[in-house]
Design a protein around this nucleic acid. Structure first.
Lengths: 268, 268
DNA sequence: TCGGTAGGTTCATTATTTGACACTATGTAG
DNA sequence: CTACATAGTGTCAAATAATGAACCTACCGA
């Protein structure tokens, strides 16, 4: 046994990963990306990138806009998403629960799943009752260290995630983003102790957010519920209602997914 | 040197294609697939398959069921589908149009997109008014030569698709499936001439189906609308109504997508 | 105990991928 | 017109990454 702890500079990229990484550059803001842009984004050679793009396109994961010659996500993805949702209807399960929460709170409620070292949105329910609303991009990936969802995940999710988040450099997103390792550790412990996470403009200015995890069959968190609120609207009373809704929502989602709440997590 | 003369019939598949092909084996019936099953399905070496699976999993395209150790589609796909739908909201555009059609007809209406040498379902609207209904698997890929959607595509889609479908062996799905090249060509010409396709139990016994394409900016078909009906329910009157709805639906979808109807296609 | 299944790993060999460079072609802004 | 951006093709030597046979472990039923 070599004792090298996970020292790998983690960049042993296979061809598959290199190609799939290309797809990650798409977002709501970047619907279409051209060859030259990909070359700049990845730093790889143009010929290589082109080969990858061509192969992804041949498989339906990309398609080319005939006018601009830029690439966009292809229909194969829709099909796979359909299969996934048919077989494992997370979104469908979560939706009624979250819609109810949003309705009662009058605030946006947001569901995210752990994915690699980020979180990806599964569903967001906006009750649309206030004039000022949280602008939310469903396609954006959320960092673990700077969001209420992420903190809840770090506190109750798989250990590897916490280790990773602590070991790597953290980007700053807003003036309040917590970067220092000791501070982050403190936040995680605090989150574990009280059962919910709180982000005070860690990710977005003027947004405060509460988060709580839901759990898989082994009592490890697999995703989160979160309620972001515009700064200033958050009163003590609203906070209490949010925590209460999160508790009930977390239990409901966990139950519906066939998961189990871990011993230390008691949504009294 | 042992030489089993490699009877390689397959084309030069890149690593990326090999890996992505693994994902295609998932469907509503096959929600989870184990390593051994993949080996059987693909005929490739176990170690190779395992590496591909691992790399797909690392990127979130697969995840492993902790209990069974089988693989299922992962959350990355949901995210990409979200981006795709945000940027290019085909499903959202198509839904109201198709819902209306289904409502008026009282029959299932089905939207599919061309993808490679198959068609994949984008949306299906079931008005649920009859006792007997068409059972429809949204996740299934449809062959070009044996469905109303496929025939409409062959008649009005890119030439390459027709060439490919005619050049390759065709599978039989039901007693009526058309296999012979000359017969298929005849069907395609007929479809072109009258502007809609008709499948009399080519794909599924007891199902008759009418189809019509919708078009992209260049006047080439990019997808289809189809109305499958249980055999016996299809009267002349219903057929006329279906054709009429298809005509209007095809025009509406084409318009909404910013496409143009080709010169020869006149939905009078 | 055996035999069959399953998931997962190792490592030397090999062949696929890679990137630099050169070249075409189209579009567009000055 | 030039100058510079874009997309795309082709070649080829070098390096890296993919490969498959064999091996290991664990589980299950007889």
């Amino acid at each position: 046994m070599t004792l090298h702890p996970k020292t790998r500079t983690d960049l042993q990229l296979g061809t598959i990963t290199k190609a799939l990484t290309l797809l990650d550059h798409f977002s709501s803001d970047r619907a279409e990306i051209g060859l030259a842009s990909f070359v700049r984004l990845t730093g790889r050679d143009k010929a290589t990138v082109r080969r990858h793009l061509a192969e992804l396109e041949a498989n339906g994961y990309l398609e080319q806009n005939p006018d601009t010659r830029q690439y966009r996500l292809g229909p194969a993805i829709l099909r796979l998403a359909g299969v996934r949702e048919t077989c494992f209807p997370l979104r469908g399960i979560v939706r009624p629960i979250v819609d109810d929460m949003a309705q009662r709170l009058g605030e946006l409620v947001h569901v995210a799943l752990m994915q690699g070292d980020m979180m990806s949105t599964v569903y967001a329910s906006d009750p649309k009752v206030h004039g000022t609303r949280v602008i939310f991009d469903e396609a954006e990936m959320l960092p673990l260290h700077a969001t209420a969802s992420g903190l809840a995940m770090l506190a109750f999710g798989p250990e590897e995630a916490t280790d990773y988040a602590l070991a790597h450099d953290r980007k700053s997103f807003a003036p309040n983003t917590v970067i220092a390792k000791s501070d982050l550790l403190h936040l995680v412990r605090q989150t574990r102790a009280r059962g919910y996470s709180f982000s005070d403009q860690y990710f977005t200015s003027e947004i405060q957010s509460h988060g709580m995890p839901f759990f898989g069959p082994d009592g490890v968190a697999i995703g989160t519920l979160a309620v972001p609120v515009p700064q200033g609207r958050l009163t003590d009373e609203l906070r209490d209602r949010i925590i209460d809704e999160l508790r009930r929502g977390s239990a409901a989602v966990t139950r519906s997914l066939g998961g189990t709440l871990p011993a230390g997590f008691d949504p009294t």
